Every structure is written in C-alpha cells, then in structure tokens.
Computed example of a mutant assay.
Amino acid sequence: MIAHIIPSLEFGGAERMLLKLCLCDKKNNIVFYFKTGPILSDLNKQGVKSFKINSFIDLCRVLFRLNLRSNLVVNCWLYKSCIFGGFIKILNSSIPVYFNHRNSLDCKNKYGMKRRFVLYLVYKLSKYVDGVIYNSESGYKTYQIKYNQCTNQIVLPNGFDDQIFMPGNRSKLGDFRHNLGINDYELVFVCSGRNHSVKRYDIIIEAFSKFNEKINNKAKLLICGTDTKNLKTIIPDFCRDSIILVGEVTNMIKYYQISDYLLLYSDTEGFPNVVGEAMLCGLPAIVSDVGDCRKLVEDTGWVGNSGDVLNLVSILYSAYNVSSIEYRNRSDRAVEIITKKYSINNIYEKYLRFFYAS
C-alpha cells in the first residue's frame, strides 16, 4: 500500500502526477490531503480512496494503523507533506517514508525567510527518511548543494498517458476553435499554468504582441490557468483581440489539440507536465532553458533564454516560418519521444522498484 500525503488537491503539476500514479493501481494507492480541490472529484470517480486530514495527530493515527495491517510506504509530495513525513519517521521508524520533490531550486528570485526556513527543516529531516525522489535532473542537482542529507535518491520524471493525450482531428474541432474566436488561417500558441511571477506571462505577452504585430495579427495566444484572466491589465490595446485569457481549465486536451505550439517561458521549472502533455498531442514546444525542459523537448522544439523578450520574439518568428513538412516532422517526433521514454505505466513501475527495493 502506498499512502500519498499532499497539501492540497488543486490542479497543479504535482497533483496531476499523483492522480496519474494512483490510476495505475487504484487498490494499492491511498491519498491523504489537507485542502480539497478539483483533483478530488477525479480520484472519487476512479475509485481511489482519499481522506481529508485535519491535523498532524490525525495523520499519525491513521498511518500507524495502516502500517500494522499492510506493507505501507509513505510518499510525501511537496514541502508541507515532507515536513509531516519526516516527523512521522522520527516517531515510528518502522514506516518507510519518502520525500517527493517536484521542483528545482534554480529560480533567479531570492527566497524569502519563510521559504528558507521550510527548506532548512526539509534538509534536517531528510537524514531520517528512506529515500528522496526528484522529478528532474535539475532538481536532483540543485538539492545536493545544501538541501539534502539522504543518500538513497532517484530521478523519476513525470509520466504521460498516450490513451488520453493524443493529436486531435482539426476538422472535428472547428466549432471549438471558432467559439474561442480563432479563425481557420490563424496560428495558435497555447500556455498552460497559473498566474504567478515565475511563469513570466509579462515576457510572454510582450514578446507575442511584438511578434504578432510583425506578422499582421495572424496568430492567437491562448493562456489557460488559475487567475490568468487577471492578466488583461498588461495586454496592449492593439493586441487584445489576439490574446485569449481562458482562465482555469481542468481538461487541457482540446486546447492542445486546436493549437500549433506550446509556449512555456518560466524562470524555474522541474519537469513540466504541460510540455509532455502538449508533445503527446503533437505540439512542438517553445520553452525556456530551465529545469529539464531542454532534455524533454530534444530536437522537436525551441529552447530560449528566460526573461529575454527579444530572444522569444525571434523564436516565435522561427516557429511561424517553418515549412509544413518540417512542422509535421517535429510534431511526429514529439509524440514519439513522450510515448517511448515517458509512459506513465513505466514510470509507475520505477516507483514501485524504488519503494520496495530500498
């Protein structure tokens, strides 16, 4: 039995990866969460057991009971859960506890006092746990500097389901495009991510506006994610009809399928779900050179410099000018990479081997 502890069930990268792992074996995964969110309904629909935790004491009681009845492993997602899991390990050393880090620490922004204190706690508690999982090579490297004491470590990237994400039939999605205000001849770039400073929507919007003006407004930019509708204040007046603020989306498949390129230009990432999902749908990706983005896209997309507007304008223009043959080759290769290297079933098997061979 794998008991997953996660702070919330919001629609973030960690939560979505948790859902995918649980769906690989619904009977042997159980989820404990502190705050509800849209992922909860998906867990319930699929028959995955999940329980809301109100306090650390409640969590200890449940896990101690489960440990008596089953071959329990505790998988702690994100910092809050890692801190709880570290103290659980101290209280009951017979329970295998693993930290699961979903980020890399390469952000240009300085960490505040609260974040530094949390990282210090995670560092101190890491010497007690049975193993640490990173979802990216960059995450592994940056945590080694001063935030980890556990020697049993592994990089397990996000996995993707090619039975869910796949290229769409554009002729059948015409009405969906038109309802969003997209003409048949327009090139479509799509972003998916919450409205947060590290996502650099300011850079994306400025670069897209400059690029679209150069090509006489023949492109559209879809921005999907929590609180993204609040970005309307930074969109130039001349580009308001070309940038569509969709807001939070719980199922991105159709948005990928009606688009031509994924655009992710963050200051920091680990191993971004959205890139793998979009690639499975046949989209070449335009990404900044952070986290494992370069490793993921390989030769199918473009890798640029985070924070560099002119660099992104140049890349957008390069993508706009590719021939139909080159685009098809990049698209097919993107699907092939994710299917062969990042199948969710293969990733789940690697989790099991790490947990039960440690």
Rank of each mutant, 00 (worst) to 15 (best):
G37H: 04
P157I: 04
V287S: 04
K114V: 07
S259D: 07
I253W: 05
G47S: 13
L310H: 06
I243A: 07
L59A: 11
D292W: 04
K20R: 08
R194N: 06
T151S: 15
N29H: 04
G247R: 03
E186N: 12
S323P: 01
K210R: 13
D58N: 13
V129T: 06
H196Q: 08
N216R: 08
P96I: 03
F51D: 13
D106V: 06
L187A: 03
K146R: 06
N305H: 02
T226Q: 05
D227K: 08
G291E: 00
Y201E: 01
F271Q: 02
I164M: 03
M113W: 06
R353P: 13
N321T: 14
G301C: 02
S8K: 14
I5Y: 07
N311S: 09
C22R: 00
A3C: 15
L222Y: 07
Y111Q: 11
R61M: 10
S41R: 08
K220N: 15
D202A: 08
D184A: 08
G112V: 03
F34N: 03
A219D: 08
A219L: 07
K80C: 06
V155T: 07
N152Y: 05
L312R: 01
N183Q: 12
K124Q: 14
M113Q: 11
N251T: 15
V155A: 09
L283E: 00
N158I: 03
I145P: 09
N135I: 13
K27I: 13
R61P: 13
I337Q: 02
E206Q: 12
T250P: 04
Y256D: 15
N216D: 04
R240H: 06
D332W: 04
P96H: 04
Y265W: 12
A219T: 04
D260F: 03
R294W: 05
D162R: 11
I244E: 06
G37V: 01
K52Q: 14
L280N: 00
R177Q: 10
Q46P: 14
V322M: 10
S70D: 15
I347Y: 00
G139S: 05
P284G: 01
S197V: 10
S242K: 12
V62F: 08
E326M: 07
R61N: 11
L280G: 00
F238R: 03
C281R: 11
L121N: 11
P38F: 09
K350A: 06
S306A: 15
R330A: 02
V97G: 06
G37Q: 03
S192W: 10
E326G: 05
I90K: 10
V297G: 01
N71P: 05
Y201P: 03
V246S: 02
Y356R: 14
L119K: 13
K35F: 05
H178A: 12
L221R: 09
H101L: 09
V309Q: 15
S70H: 14
S171I: 09
Y120L: 15
P284F: 00
Y140K: 09
A14V: 06
F34P: 07
P167G: 12
R115Y: 11
